[in-house]
Computed example of a mutant assay.
Amino acid sequence: MLEVENLIYQYDGRQREVMLHFHSLFTNHYNLTCKITFNNPCYYGKSWVCYLKPIKENKIELAFFRGNELSNNQGLLKSNGRKQLLSIDIENLESVPHQTLNEILHEAILLDKTKPYESKRKPTKR
């Protein structure tokens, strides 16, 4: 976990603040494990649940690996042309719809606990 926190502290201002907030929430409240994958903090239950990624304009992308399997009844998550991954861009903690994000997190974690991830990739012939 120290490795992830060291990575987060490399960022400044709002990006660091947002990433620290969600890192603490994911690891302390939701008991997800974390590690750096593709140079981003990634959070796991049985499998990948979500990741945080600094993006342009000092925002953080919070992305859900199995976003296409979430209900997204709130309409908060966007695909940005991706088939499986859905995400929200967060500029600062004041703009975060906390109640809605908690609902999405609960659903993502429940999905991870109850339905094993099945790869959609077709096996390659050898």
Rank of each mutant, 00 (worst) to 15 (best):
L7V: 02
L7Y: 01
L7T: 03
I8T: 07
Y9N: 04
Q10G: 13
Q10T: 07
Q10A: 08
Y11S: 04
Y11H: 12
D12Y: 05
R14W: 15
R14N: 14
Q15Y: 08
Q15E: 15
R16C: 01
E17F: 06
M19V: 09
L20P: 07
L20Q: 14
H21V: 09
H23A: 08
H23S: 11
L25Q: 09
T27S: 01
N28I: 04
H29L: 08
Y30I: 08
N31M: 06
T33R: 13
T33K: 12
C34Y: 05
K35T: 13
T37R: 11
F38Q: 15
N39W: 00
N40G: 00
Y43D: 02
Y43M: 06
Y44P: 09
Y44M: 07
G45W: 01
G45N: 05
K46P: 05
S47V: 09
S47K: 09
W48C: 15
C50D: 00
Y51M: 15
L52G: 07
P54I: 03
P54D: 06
I55R: 04
I55L: 01
I55C: 10
K56Y: 10
K56E: 15
K56M: 07
N58A: 13
K59E: 11
K59V: 13
I60L: 04
A63S: 13
A63N: 05
F64P: 04
F64G: 02
F65T: 12
R66F: 00
N72I: 03
N72M: 05
N73F: 03
Q74I: 09
G75W: 04
S79G: 14
R82F: 10
R82N: 14
K83V: 03
K83D: 10
Q84W: 15
L85Q: 11
L86I: 04
S87N: 08
I88K: 02
E91F: 02
E91T: 09
N92Q: 14
L93Y: 03
H98F: 11
L101I: 11
L101D: 00
I104E: 00
L105M: 08
E107W: 10
I109Y: 01
L110C: 12
L110E: 06
L110K: 10
L111D: 00
T114R: 05
Y117M: 03
K120C: 04
K122N: 11
K125M: 12
